[in-house]
């Protein structure tokens, strides 16, 4: 029997599992060794796998990314941790300018199978620069996979898949739900598929599309709506680049209505890409405009006011009702 574990424990379990299975997997980052990571995602790895495979790096994010590029091209599988999304920007030159195009620019001679893990998102009363959701900045980049789990079981299977993937993956961990709900996760060593949406709940009246921590509010909204007799299909996008639009389009074709929910600011976000694709390819199946429930186009507030920024279950219910009432 498997014990119920949290998402951060599932990440830790996946790292242990894959490091045992594959000697080429390395973990590196700030405080990932002796301290086990600021969220304890890497706890125990240093004891089991030693300093050579679990590296406490100097405090320099550009270096962590650049080093990972160098290691990945030489047959290692670095799994780098960036402590918070707000500190990821120095890595971008290496992820975008090198990792994402190494296979392409060498016509397959070299590749860059690295994973960058990063906790992201608001709602835990963290200091400034610790709560942003900037996935769209990365999802825009050809060649860079962006993967976001929303439950412990998916965190386990998707992280294994990300590490085994032969190309670079940004693995974003919604830290608001790191320890929220425990669920049984078997250490099976089995991956979950990338590049595909996960339909969490089938329904016929409306399609709710979300990812990461907002899956929690989205499912809560679906539960309440079910009580009112509204059947919601809930889709967890999971891989934000490349996006499996087909699953979303097929659902919208069935329901005719769609609400997209994300924590990131509204403009230029991944939700806009999904809405645009529905407009391009699913317009005639729509019975109402696509609605978006998102953060605001402003700087993430400090923690005292952050609840005013975060999309709520009530926001989703309101958007669903407006969409359902449209005629």
């Amino acid at each position: 029997m498997s014990n119920a574990i949290t998402m951060v424990e599932a990440v830790n379990l996946a790292l242990h599992s894959e490091m045992r299975r594959d000697q080429s997997v390395m973990v590196l980052g700030e405080d990932v060794g002796v301290n086990g990571g600021v969220f304890r995602a890497t706890v125990g790895l240093r004891d089991e796998f030693g300093m050579k495979r679990v590296m406490d790096t100097p405090l320099a994010e550009t270096m962590i990314a650049g080093l990972s590029v160098g290691m990945a091209t030489q047959g290692l599988k670095p799994v780098a941790e960036i402590q918070f999304m707000g500190f990821i920007f120095p890595t971008m030159e290496h992820l975008i300018g090198h990792a994402a195009r190494m296979r392409h620019r060498t016509r397959g001679r070299l590749s860059c199978p690295l994973v960058v893990r990063v906790p992201y998102g608001g709602g835990i009363h963290a200091p400034e620069h610790h709560s942003e959701s900037t996935e769209a900045l990365f999802a825009h980049i050809p060649g860079l996979r962006v993967v976001i789990p929303s439950s412990p079981a998916r965190a386990y299977g998707l992280l294994l898949a990300a590490i085994r993937n032969p190309d670079p993956v940004l693995f974003m961990e919604p830290k608001r739900v790191y320890r929220l709900n425990a669920q049984p996760v078997e250490d099976s060593g089995e991956t979950l598929p990338l590049d595909t949406c996960y339909t969490l709940r089938e329904g016929s009246d409306i399609t709710l599309v979300s990812w990461g921590a907002m899956i929690k509010e989205t499912l809560e909204a679906a539960d309440r709506l079910a009580q009112q007799g509204v059947s919601c299909e809930v889709i967890d996008v999971v891989t934000l680049n490349p996006i499996d639009h087909n699953t979303i389009l097929a659902s919208v074709d069935k329901t005719g209505r769609c609400v997209i929910v994300h924590e990131a600011p509204k403009s230029g976000a991944v939700g806009a890409e999904i809405a645009a694709t529905i407009a391009e390819k699913g317009l005639l199946s729509l019975q109402a405009p696509v609605a978006r429930v998102t953060g605001y186009d402003t700087v993430m507030p400090y923690y005292r006011m952050e609840h005013h920024y975060m999309p709520s279950t009530a926001d989703i219910l309101e958007a669903v009702n407006t969409t359902l009432e449209f005629s």
Binding site: M55, T62, M63, A65, G66, L67, S68, V69, G70, M71, A72, T73, Q74, G75, L76, P78, H94, H98
Partner: peptide, 10 residues
């Protein structure tokens, strides 16, 4: 320069 440090780490 950083890629070389990564290669050397490997």
């Amino acid at each position: 320069s950083l890629h070389a440090a990564g290669v050397a780490s490997a």
